[in-house]
């Protein structure tokens, strides 16, 4: 799906990006659009193609067809120049275990030609200054993840690509990571693409969301767009004495109702008028009305709905 064009040119854009391992297709004509200054949550279940997409965005894999454009330029033609403005953390960070945390950062700093003072800055930013002298092999999973983030932040990039950055972090670490990403976006105007398989994680920080399932983009838009999508999927829950009797007595009003229990009916929420008519109809038919409430699906339900639809 291709979103409507916006006034601002996307900072990151893929056009009909496809990829496969041999004959096995992995991504199908992906059209991502990441606006500058946004935190784009790239959501999808495990195996949906998130990490493959991330690798394509960094030129680690060559697409079967389609293009990746960063900062308005073709990645295939200007990879080295464009990656100079990108910081990335792909899956579990690949560290040199025999080097200390500081030496790991130094190796990348020297490779990128970044000023020397950045090493101490990024180590402090991710809270690893005190442990920087320890070999990376002694780091916990959370510390490794933070060191990986330090490597991504080293060049002070305009665009951050983070693949499941909260993996292995404890709850405090997750909150800190989230706060850090929000700060980077709000205070420094950085654009962040963060992938995750957890909608709860994304909804707490993302401004935009893309949902991928089996290599296809099944939703892309702002977080309010996704929230609006779930409004259309609101349900009416009706509790009475006998669900089947009610359906027989009010066949028109309960045409789309499903029996969820002996005295419980679920039906799509249509309008306030429809709800009022239903309540009046039940009372007129002499049926007890114990409860009648509207239920909004959670974002998680919407995500599951989006990712399950394609399976059918």
């Amino acid at each position: 799906m291709r979103p409507a064009p916006t006034a601002t040119a996307p900072l990151l854009e893929t056009r009909d990006l496809s990829f496969g391992f041999g004959a096995r297709p992995i991504l199908h004509a992906l059209n991502l659009q990441v606006e500058p200054g946004s935190i784009y949550g790239f959501l999808g279940p495990n195996g949906a193609g998130k990490s493959t997409t991330m690798r394509l965005l960094l030129g680690l894999l060559r697409p079967a067809s389609g293009t990746v454009r960063l900062f308005g330029h073709d990645l295939a033609r200007h990879r080295v120049a464009l990656l100079g403005r990108v910081g990335a953390l792909i899956e579990s960070p690949s560290l040199y275990d025999h080097l200390t945390g500081r030496e790991n950062v130094e190796a990348t700093r020297r490779l990128r030609g970044v000023p020397a003072h950045r090493t101490a800055e990024v180590l402090a930013l991710v809270g690893l200054a005190a442990d920087a002298h320890r070999p990376a092999r002694e780091y916990s999973l959370g510390m490794r993840q933070r060191l990986g983030l330090a490597l991504a932040l080293l060049p002070d990039p305009d665009l951050l690509l983070l693949d499941e950055p909260t993996n292995g972090l404890d709850p405090t670490g997750i909150i800190e990571m989230r706060a850090l990403l929000r700060r980077l976006s709000h205070e420094q105007g950085k654009t962040i693409l963060v992938s995750s398989h957890l909608i709860n994680e994304i909804e707490k920080m993302a401004t935009h969301v893309g949902v991928i399932q089996r290599g296809r983009l099944v939703f892309q838009g702002s977080l309010p767009d996704l929230q609006r999508l779930q409004t259309g999927r609101a349900q009416l829950v009706l509790e009475t004495e006998n669900a089947d009797t009610c359906r027989n007595l009010l066949p028109r009003l309960l045409a789309e109702a499903t029996v969820a229990g002996p005295g419980t009916l679920h039906l799509p929420w249509l309008s306030r008028e429809h709800t009022a008519e239903l309540a009046a109809g039940l009372v007129a038919a002499g049926q007890p009305l114990y409860a009648l409430r509207q239920e909004q699906p959670s974002l998680e339900d919407t995500f599951l709905h989006l990712t399950e639809t394609i399976k059918e």
């Binding site: 690798r55 960094l58 030129g59 680690l60 990879r79 080295v80 120049a81 464009l82 990656l83 100079g84 990108v86 990335a88 792909i90 899956e91 579990s92 960070p93 690949s94 560290l95 040199y96 275990d97 990348t108 490779l111 990128r112 490597l151």
Partner: peptide
């Protein structure tokens, strides 16, 4: 041990 991923994602040819 994963270093290629880190190395080849850097802005060097």
């Amino acid at each position: 041990r994963g270093g290629w991923r880190q190395l080849l994602a850097q802005p060097v040819s």
